[in-house]
């Protein structure tokens, strides 16, 4: 990442492409199965942003996977809005883009790596119905309402399954 930022290193960027382009495409296809062109466009858009923003990326504050996830999420929201599939007067860039450059607080690599490890092992042990809801919400980008309709579950059940999953994965600071 540093090589991309300071030397505009194309070889480093090429390696990054090989790793992330297939994942970003998979993320796009999770929402729109079969839409390969959309997936290509999203991957391109996200990776261009990575190239342009490489200088502002701070590894101390945010791990690269997380950073790329937030970029992919933002680009996907933009894409759907631009293409009229999400009717709204609200400009999402001012809601989410600020955050991608934000200082996420006193985060340390160690803490992040530990959390990532916990999440990874937690995900493999998550009850199927909770994992299914996380997939809907995070990967397919479905609202709670849409999830409830698609899975024929009461809205309250959808919400409580998200809550249970988060608790089991210990993602949140309890208050």
């Amino acid at each position: 990442m540093t090589r991309i930022a300071t030397h505009s290193d194309k070889a480093a960027f090429s390696t990054l492409f090989d790793h992330y382009a297939p994942l970003i495409r998979a993320y796009s296809l999770a929402r729109e199965p079969g839409a390969n062109l959309v997936a290509d466009e999203l991957a391109q858009e996200v990776l261009i942003r990575v190239w342009l923003k490489a200088g502002s990326y701070n590894a101390q504050l945010s791990n690269i996977n997380t950073w790329i996830f937030t970029l992919a999420r933002n680009c996907r929201i933009d894409y759907f809005r631009r293409n009229g599939r999400y009717i709204s007067d609200i400009d999402p860039t001012e809601i989410f883009n600020n955050i991608e450059d934000d200082d996420p607080g006193p985060f340390q690599q160690v803490h992040q790596d530990r959390l990532a490890k916990n999440i990874k092992s937690g995900l493999s042990k998550l009850p199927r119905e909770q994992a299914e809801i996380l997939t809907k919400v995070y990967l397919e980008g479905k609202s709670h309402q849409q999830t409830s309709t698609e899975l024929k579950l009461p809205l309250g059940t959808v919400k409580s399954r998200v809550r249970l999953a988060l608790r089991k994965l210990q993602v949140l600071i309890l208050r």
Binding site: P22, L29, N63, Y138
Partner: peptide, 24 residues
């Protein structure tokens, strides 16, 4: 804000768990 950051981490782990779809 801190919780949000951790929820982003969850998002990235979910993304990494996907079957990669090779581009042309």
């Amino acid at each position: 804000t801190q919780n949000l950051h951790q929820l982003h981490q969850l998002g990235s782990e979910l993304m990494l768990s996907l079957q990669p779809a090779k581009p042309s």
